[in-house]
């Protein structure tokens, strides 16, 4: 039986098994499914404290058909370094060491370990799935939460903008940095494949709309994810050895007129419900400046 839609492009084998513990509409199962398909299950996955610690399912079962090492919140990248070196010591070279970490575990508490592993040039695929808050602990703001968003610790809306960690990773001059979205699986799949063929630390920042934390209906995950890209709030690109390239639908959004107004994206989410007009403008300006940065990078 052939699978519907985009799945017919990918290997049949499933590594994210039925019965996992995610909320309905959760982006984790979607993203991880494509990632593990792209790696054909030849991956040891390190997971720091995050929603996925729960999604994996409780002892004695696991919803993931790959070896998993759960680890403390700040420790994912360093743990991956240890696995990698041990594999190399044993002469095993055909297994990918993958970190699957949330935005909190990446852009906040885990950034030191990530930076260290990147600087050491460790051969790791690091994937940050970004649901733009600490969801596991009940929707607290993170460094990746966008301006204006409600969280339980920014009840009147966050006053700071999202931290640009892909740019920080580009500054590490690693071989591969990419952004991706659960709404664009082929783009994600291709990026993981590409990363898997390079040596060094590969960083993929995966936009992952969370219906629970962002307050939208659970059947709208893909719609929200796609609107983030179509409005230019989230930009799909890859940076291969320092060379920038827009990918997927973002490739035709360099011209501002092609982008949908961010309101279309914001409107779907309760977390932005209290945004004033001024706030929307502030966000729009930020999005525009983000595109200016990308334009500069493309010209490099």
């Amino acid at each position: 039986m052939s699978k519907p839609g985009v799945l017919r492009l990918f290997p049949e084998e499933e590594y994210v098994l039925p019965g996992h513990a995610a909320c309905p509409g959760c982006p984790i199962g979607i993203g991880l499914r494509y990632v593990l398909k792209a790696l054909e299950g030849k991956a040891i996955v390190v997971i720091p404290a995050c929603c996925t610690s729960i999604v994996a399912g409780p002892f004695p079962r696991s919803a993931f058909k790959v070896p998993v090492l759960h680890i403390a919140f700040a420790a994912a990248a360093a743990t991956a370094s240890g696995i990698l070196e041990a594999l190399e010591a044993k002469g095993i070279t055909d297994v990918h060491v993958v970190v699957w970490a949330g935005d909190g575990g990446t852009v906040d508490i885990g950034i030191q370990a990530l930076s260290g592993a990147a600087e050491r040039g460790h051969n790791i695929i690091y994937i940050c799935y970004d649901n733009e808050a600490y969801m596991n602990t009940g929707i607290q703001r993170s460094g990746a939460t966008p301006y204006g968003a409600w969280t339980t610790t920014t009840v009147t809306g966050k006053r700071e903008h999202k931290k640009d960690v892909p740019a920080i990773m580009v500054a590490h001059r690693i071989p591969y940095v990419a952004t991706a979205s659960v709404g664009f699986p082929v783009d994600l799949y291709n990026k993981v494949k590409k990363a898997s063929m390079m040596k060094g630390l590969k960083y993929i920042h995966l936009h992952a709309p969370c219906p629970v934390g962002w307050r939208f209906p659970s059947e709208k995950t893909i719609e929200v994810a796609r609107l983030a890209v179509e409005t230019g709030m989230w930009v799909l690109y890859e940076v291969v050895y320092g060379k920038f390239k827009l990918t997927g639908p973002s490739a035709r959004l360099l011209d501002k007129k092609q982008r949908k107004p961010i309101g279309e994206y914001l409107r779907l989410q309760e977390r932005f419900r209290k945004l004033s007009e001024q706030d929307v403008k502030e966000l729009q300006d930020f999005v525009d400046s983000q595109w200016e940065y990308i334009t500069k990078m493309l010209e490099r």
């Binding site: 680890i71 420790a75 360093a78 041990a86 044993k90």
Partner: peptide, 27 residues
């Protein structure tokens, strides 16, 4: 014949030991 992981902190030192030991290495 050993690999030295020159980590950026002790938290990471022990994390790397954990990763390596869980993979079967003597650390």
């Amino acid at each position: 014949k050993a690999k030295m992981i020159r980590v950026e902190s002790e938290h990471s030192a022990m994390a790397a030991c954990i990763g390596a030991s869980a993979t079967g290495a003597r650390v």
